[in-house]
């Protein structure tokens, strides 16, 4: 083999780059995140769709609601199994899933998803804090 002095370090760098995910976690001091979510404290069992579907589709539903309400001015309601839901994060989702930090954030942090819902919406914790400040 020619140019061992360059080839061997080059190969080592290549292998380290390619195996980055394998060794990064070993040296990372940060604690791993836990994607288990807190179920609704009120004990509700049913969402507007089955859980599997909600996991995969909730962002699409919320996006459609956003477009419907804010862009088309269609503030209708959604009725599932006789229960009426207002179209909105705070009008529907957060009524049962009251804790954003223990529900939304768990999976979002785990999968590094940063939805821009909270650019406009307040979380229940922020709302409470805001109310206290106002009083």
């Amino acid at each position: 083999m020619y140019n061992k002095g360059l080839i061997v370090p080059g190969l080592i760098i290549t292998v380290l780059l390619v195996t980055f995910p394998f060794w990064f976690d070993v040296f990372s001091s940060a604690e791993s995140t836990d994607p288990t979510v807190e179920l609704p404290p009120g004990g509700e069992q049913n969402c507007i769709y089955p859980a599997d579907e909600m996991r995969a589709e909730h962002m699409v539903i919320l996006n459609e609601w956003r477009d419907d309400v804010l862009r088309n001015g269609n503030r209708g309601t959604v009725t599932v199994d006789g229960k009426v839901y207002g179209k909105g994060l705070q009008l529907a989702c957060m009524k049962c899933h009251t804790n954003k930090e223990e529900f939304c954030d768990r999976c979002h942090t785990y999968a590094s998803v940063v939805p821009y819902c909270w650019d406009c919406h307040l979380t229940p914790t922020q709302q409470k804090a805001g109310l206290k400040e106002a009083n």
């Binding site: 976690d25 940060a30 791993s32 995140t33 996006n63 590094s112």
Partner: peptide, 28 residues
Amino acid sequence: HLRLFLDPVPVWIGWIEFWDGLLQIGAP
């Protein structure tokens, strides 16, 4: 794609995702 392999996800991967998804079209 490293966000799917690393736990916890390093901050800089979030920055890449932010700039790549800057147009905020649709959800996801």
